[in-house]
C-alpha cells in the first residue's frame, strides 16, 4: 500500500504555508466578511446592508436581488418594482464578469458548511456509493421555475437552504438548522460535494452566468504539471480541470468552475493562475 498523499502538503513544503493557502484565506475572509456585514445590523445596529441574500439594500441605496428569486417571481406572474429589477441587473452584471459561481465559493454561507463536511469526508475516507448525476441540479432548476409558474408562488423559498440558513442567522432559525444538518450529513457521509456539486439549484442558476465570465482559472504553466492530482483532489468540480491541463485550451472554460482558486493554492508546480477568458 502506497503512502497516502495529502493534497496541498507538497505545495506547503515548496511554497510556504501562506502561499499554499492564499486564495482559501481570501475566500474565507470574503464569506465571513459578507455574512458579518449582514450581521452587523441586527447585532450592532450598524446597517451596512439590510435584507437577506434573496434581496437586500446595501449602503442605504444599492439594491441587490437574487436572479433565481426574481425569475420565480416573474414565472409566478408578478412583475416586481424597478428596484428589484435594477438589483438583479447589478448582480447579473457583476457575476457575468467575475463568473457566476464566484457566488458559491465567495459569498454563499452554505459553502462554509459544505467545506467542513468535505474536509470530514476526506478525513474519514468515506467513499459513498450513491451516484448522482452532476446535471441533476439543472433539472431541479428547471423544475423550480415550472413549479413557480404552476403554483404562482416563489416556491423554492419554502426550502432554499442558502437563504434559509442566512435568514435564520439574521432573524430566527426555527427548524432551519435541520436543512443545514441534512446538507452536512449528505456531503460528509453520503456523497462528496453532494449539495454544491450535484443538487443545489441556486448554484446551477449562477453557473449559467459562467458561460461568458471574463475571469477564469488558467493552467498557464501546464507543461510543468507532474500529474500529482492534488488539484483534482481539492476541486469541488474536478471534471472541469482536465480539459485545461490536457485539452486544446489551457483555460478552465467550464461554467461549473467556482473560481475558488483552491487549485492555484495546492499546486506545488504553480501551474494555475487567475486569468481572463481566451
Amino acid at each position: 500500500m502506497s503512502k497516502r498523499r495529502t493534497p496541498g502538503q507538497e505545495a506547503v513544503e515548496k511554497k510556504g504555508w501562506l502561499r499554499a493557502n492564499t486564495w482559501l484565506l481570501l475566500r474565507r475572509l470574503s464569506q465571513l466578511g459578507i455574512l458579518g456585514m449582514f450581521l452587523l445590523g441586527p447585532l450592532a445596529g450598524l446597517w451596512l446592508i439590510k435584507g437577506t441574500l434573496s434581496a437586500s439594500t446595501a449602503f442605504g441605496f444599492l439594491p441587490l436581488t437574487d436572479p433565481l428569486t426574481v425569475a420565480q417571481s416573474l414565472a409566478a406572474g408578478h412583475v416586481p418594482e424597478a428596484a428589484v429589477l435594477v438589483g438583479m441587473l447589478v448582480v447579473l452584471a457583476v457575476y457575468t464578469v467575475i463568473g457566476g459561481r464566484m457566488y458559491c465559493a465567495w459569498v454563499c454561507p452554505i459553502n462554509l458548511l459544505t467545506d467542513i463536511a468535505t474536509w470530514l469526508n476526506r478525513r474519514l475516507e468515506i467513499k459513498g456509493n450513491l451516484n448522482l448525476s452532476r446535471s441533476l441540479r439543472y433539472w431541479l432548476l428547471g423544475m423550480i421555475i415550472i413549479s413557480a409558474a404552476v403554483t404562482g408562488s416563489i416556491i423554492w423559498e419554502w426550502f432554499n437552504p442558502v437563504t434559509m440558513v442566512q435568514r435564520g442567522l439574521l432573524f430566527s432559525m426555527g427548524f432551519g438548522w435541520l436543512l443545514a444538518a441534512e446538507i452536512f450529513i449528505l456531503d460528509a457521509f453520503v456523497l462528496r460535494h453532494g449539495w454544491c456539486g450535484h443538487l443545489c439549484p441556486v448554484g446551477a442558476a449562477y453557473s449559467l452566468l459562467g458561460f461568458t465570465a471574463a475571469l477564469r482559472v488558467k493552467a498557464a504553466r501546464r507543461e510543468r504539471c507532474t500529474d500529482c492530482t492534488d488539484c483534482f483532489a481539492v476541486c469541488p468540480e474536478p471534471q472541469v480541470i482536465r480539459p485545461a491541463l490536457k485539452g486544446s485550451s489551457d483555460v478552465i472554460l467550464s461554467h461549473n468552475c467556482l473560481n475558488c482558486g483552491r487549485c492555484i493554492d495546492v499546486c506545488p508546480q504553480e501551474v494555475f493562475v487567475f486569468s481572463k477568458r481566451a
Partner: peptide, 16 residues
C-alpha cells in the same frame, strides 16, 4: 395572499 406569495422576495426589509 396568492399574489403576495408570487411577489414577496422573503428579504425581511419590512421587518427591519
Amino acid at each position: 395572499e396568492e399574489k403576495f406569495l408570487a411577489a414577496c422576495l422573503r428579504c425581511g426589509q419590512c421587518v427591519r
